[in-house]
Simulated scan of single mutants.
Amino acid sequence: MPWFVVDDSAHSHPKIVKAGNAAMGLWMRCGAYAAQHLTDGVVPGPIASMYGTTPQATKLVKLGLWHTVGHACPRCPQPPSGDFFMHDYLAYNPTRRQVLDKRERAAEKKRRQRGQAGPTQGSPEGNRRGFASESETNRERIEDESSSIHRPLSDDSAGQEGVSPGDSLGTRVRAFPSPPLPSKEPVADVGGGSAGSSALAAQQPEGCPAPIDDDGFALTDSMRRWAAATFPSLDVDYETDQFVSHFRGEGTRRRSWPDEWQKWMRRSAKYASERRQAAAGNVVPLASRRPSTTDQRVQAALDLAAEFRALEGTDQ
């Protein structure tokens, strides 16, 4: 597992202090995402909008901690349109190819160890060799992945005065529109990103289960407005809680959680409509109520007898 490297003096760097805790929290989470998914420093737009707000992302760009497409930094590559690149990420962190090559070397070493004939596992000599091998592997990993931990941050990695707008309690505005659903149904803007579901799929290793909480799914204002306008009869908070509980228990990953949430809301609305139709078809009209008093019941019986007598007189 690769590490996202943060200098031990970052907490007091003057330009990072100017960013504020909210923007730096977004920077930290997205850095960990890039390290986990081996993106070589690219932060997909949907991930940035899922973990933070537009003011926070804008501040990181203005500070020089993130770059957008068309930036002028000579040390950093250009990210795809709608995504971000973490400034100097590759100067402090291993590349995707380096991590994969290292994993392959470790796997090959294990294969060679398994193929060698030697003392039975559990014997004193076998245990000593095993401990020595594991110790050597750990030393190699620690030295490789922590060699740049104590490199100081450069002065051009930040630079903007003022308080981060993301620190306020005002309305949180998402940075990017939603990625399109792979269906023929119209899709509303519910707070995804311009890179779309395919960008998330490219960064996510296949067969890597993770709960919905790892991806930071959250109900945004735009998602709430879309649901209220499209399905006004649904309880948005209740259905969202059901959605999160379902996928938290299932423990699987989706390429785009906002798209999956839209599908959930459509299915819930469909099931609710089917239940209402079924209930309406089972309604049986009740007969007229019986008279409520004895006098009324006696009168009703007398009136019925009079009708019978009138009918008999007609037949004669």
Results as ranks from 00 to 15, higher is better:
84 F>P: 00
38 L>F: 09
36 Q>N: 15
62 K>M: 02
34 A>N: 09
16 I>T: 13
99 V>R: 15
17 V>H: 01
100 L>I: 14
81 S>P: 06
34 A>E: 09
99 V>G: 06
85 F>P: 03
62 K>H: 00
95 T>E: 04
62 K>E: 07
89 Y>T: 02
37 H>M: 15
70 G>T: 06
80 P>W: 01
83 D>C: 15
43 V>Q: 10
28 M>F: 12
32 A>E: 07
53 T>D: 11
55 P>D: 02
30 C>Y: 05
43 V>G: 04
95 T>K: 04
102 K>T: 10
77 P>N: 13
86 M>Y: 03
26 L>I: 06
19 A>D: 04
63 L>P: 03
90 L>Q: 14
59 K>Q: 15
27 W>P: 00
60 L>R: 03
42 V>N: 05
103 R>F: 07
71 H>M: 05
34 A>P: 12
15 K>Q: 14
67 H>V: 08
65 L>P: 03
49 S>A: 14
62 K>R: 10
26 L>A: 03
79 P>D: 08
27 W>T: 01
75 R>M: 14
85 F>A: 12
92 Y>D: 03
24 M>E: 05
23 A>H: 07
98 Q>R: 09
33 Y>E: 09
13 H>Y: 00
43 V>D: 08
50 M>Q: 11
40 D>V: 10
103 R>L: 13
24 M>G: 06
104 E>H: 02
96 R>M: 08
24 M>C: 12
35 A>T: 07
40 D>Y: 04
34 A>T: 13
44 P>G: 09
23 A>K: 06
18 K>S: 15
64 G>N: 10
98 Q>W: 00
38 L>K: 13
57 A>V: 03
80 P>V: 01
19 A>T: 07
98 Q>F: 03
76 C>M: 11
97 R>S: 10
53 T>I: 08
14 P>F: 05
19 A>K: 10
80 P>D: 10
83 D>S: 15
65 L>K: 04
